[in-house]
């Protein structure tokens, strides 16, 4: 799970209390710089940190030490679920006379069309294929954003003016205040050692 997904609701309730620090951001100019910096942060033991880049930087996953997502595995099984769903749907509606509960009571209706068998497997395959794709695609889309904790319209980082170039041409390293290794002065010093353009503190 992403380290930056949710500002807990307990924090949200203390909105009136004086602003707390969210963490420190360090700005870099090129992918190569952030790559080097990311490796340093990774090796220094920080856990609650992230890189924000305008485009996916090839190799940054490894530099950050991100584990492979299980998304494809889930999607595979969702696809299989789609295949089964389509098979069940078609054989139930067109080849069985069972009555089952599907939100309401429904009954299958086998009726003869152009001499084809009720259970016409070759004819069922196109819909089975389509639903496989549909289930897999919807779960890919839904789960990718869900795992990323998106949509999340408010994020402390959006308060920072520099950070707006994170979607254009600048590369950022964010170290959050909640990281056990986080001590503002020490972390600031550490970030400076990475040779960024700028370092700023972000309020929550």
């Amino acid at each position: 799970m992403s380290a930056t997904t949710k500002p807990s609701s307990a924090k949200a309730s203390q909105a009136d209390s004086p602003p707390r620090s969210y963490g420190l951001i360090a700005e870099f100019e090129t992918p190569a710089q952030i790559m080097k910096a990311a490796e340093r942060v990774r090796d220094s033991g920080y856990k609650w940190w992230d890189c924000c880049t305008p485009f996916p930087v090839h190799g940054l996953d490894k530099a950050m030490g991100i584990r492979q997502t299980i998304l494809p595995i889930i999607v595979f099984f969702m696809g299989m679920a789609g295949t089964c769903a389509a098979f069940v749907l078609q054989s139930f509606t067109n080849a069985s006379d069972w009555t089952v509960w599907a939100g309401v009571w429904v009954t299958g209706y086998p009726f003869l069309i152009s001499g084809k068998p009720f259970m016409s497997l070759p004819a069922f395959i196109p819909v089975m294929f389509e639903l496989t794709i549909l289930f897999a695609a919807l779960s890919t889309f839904g789960l990718m954003f869900a795992f990323n904790g998106l949509p999340q319209l408010y994020h402390p980082l959006f308060r920072n003016k520099r950070f707006r170039r994170a979607t254009d041409d600048r590369f950022f390293i964010v170290i959050e205040a909640r990281d056990p290794h986080y001590f503002k002065a020490r972390t600031w010093e550490f970030l400076e050692s990475l040779d960024p353009i700028a370092i700023e503190e972000v309020e929550d």
Binding site: D50, L150, P151, A166
Partner: peptide, 14 residues
């Protein structure tokens, strides 16, 4: 959707 270019997001996104 609050996209902020997090590389952890980019990973799953890709």
């Amino acid at each position: 959707l609050g996209w902020r270019g997090s590389n952890r997001h980019w990973h799953r996104y890709e």
